[in-house]
Write a protein that binds this DNA or RNA. Sequence first.
DNA 1: TGTATAGTTGAGCAAGCACTCAATAATGGA
DNA 2: TCCATTATTGAGTGCTTGCTCAACTATACA
Lengths: 198, 198
Amino acid sequence: MGRLRTFDVDEALAAALETFWQQGYDGTPIQALCQAMGLQPGSVYAAFGSKRALFVAAVHRYIDTVSAEAIERINGAPSGLEGLRAYFGHLVDAMVDGKRQWGCLITNSLVEFAERDPELSGLFRLHLARLETSFAAALARARADGELSPGAGPEAATMLVALVQGMNVMAKSKPGRRQLQVIADAALAGLTASPPAA
Amino acid sequence: MGRLRTFDVDEALAAALETFWQQGYDGTPIQALCQAMGLQPGSVYAAFGSKRALFVAAVHRYIDTVSAEAIERINGAPSGLEGLRAYFGHLVDAMVDGKRQWGCLITNSLVEFAERDPELSGLFRLHLARLETSFAAALARARADGELSPGAGPEAATMLVALVQGMNVMAKSKPGRRQLQVIADAALAGLTASPPAA
DNA sequence: TGTATAGTTGAGCAAGCACTCAATAATGGA
DNA sequence: TCCATTATTGAGTGCTTGCTCAACTATACA
């Protein structure tokens, strides 16, 4: 019994996520979140507890939707190399047209929180490790299918994670599609490059 | 005539730079800057005008000292490839031991300001372009000396800039030396793609 | 319908923020 | 020595922040 919620919690969380993604944590006052969510402060605090808790919930939603979808492109491809190409292709598209113009919520937040919030930092590191695992699996598949150059070992997965972080940063500087495409192509070219003609 | 300054402006700026570098712009209240600089608010405002102006001065100091020194390692090496190796080697060292544990002031600030300060964003983009130019020159030298694989074109410079941004992000997640070294090695291995040299 | 329960409202609070300014102190030149 | 000028001091300004709460509204069940 009692009055029922007049708003959809997940819908409100989605709005908060977009606001944090675009403006960062410190850059987003509660007032702005309330406006984006269409709620009063009291409702926000009743539903989420605190600004930080709302942010943590938004990060989890980001991981479960945006990141999960991206990683699924790696795992769901017919071959390892195609998976990597699909991942980077979509990344570039979203950085030119879509919400990834704002970079990546994880990357942005890692930069913002690394020096002051060990708990959140741990969450972000965990996410990077998951991405690396997916890259490593795709590289292993690609290697098994003979798609990689002999020089490309499993360490390449670590390098690709770093490269994606870098692209996330670059995306915020409003680059052209060409620049982003060049980065992705150069990375994959380094993995597939046929062995130097003796 | 009149009373003389009792503090060294450049020394104070160096202290402010370190604080901004470590904690970010929004993460650093004027009070913290005053403490780091050993000054009262009035003196800070008399000397620098505003928090933002102080930050801009700190960024310029960073570019003229920290970044300039790093880039000089590329240009000052006997060969193109050695220049790149020296650059990345020093980067890894500073990320493990030194102040680059805090990442890179430019990278951190690009993430923080991209969506709200076009003037600063332009400055950061300019800096990335300068880094790319140095990479491109080193790659051209390396190519002329036959140090690169046939597949490594001038686009590799753009990729390296992105990779460095990514390493700057990763540095903030307190990685081991091994992880950073792997990233740098994998990137250069993709350019040289020559099996030996273990 | 009445009542206990739970959600919504929005003015308002304490704390922290960037910044200011009148008072004070130190300097060079008259 | 005195004075005009400039630097330093630090309490204080108005504003924004994250957050609260008493009043109000809607609901389920008796």
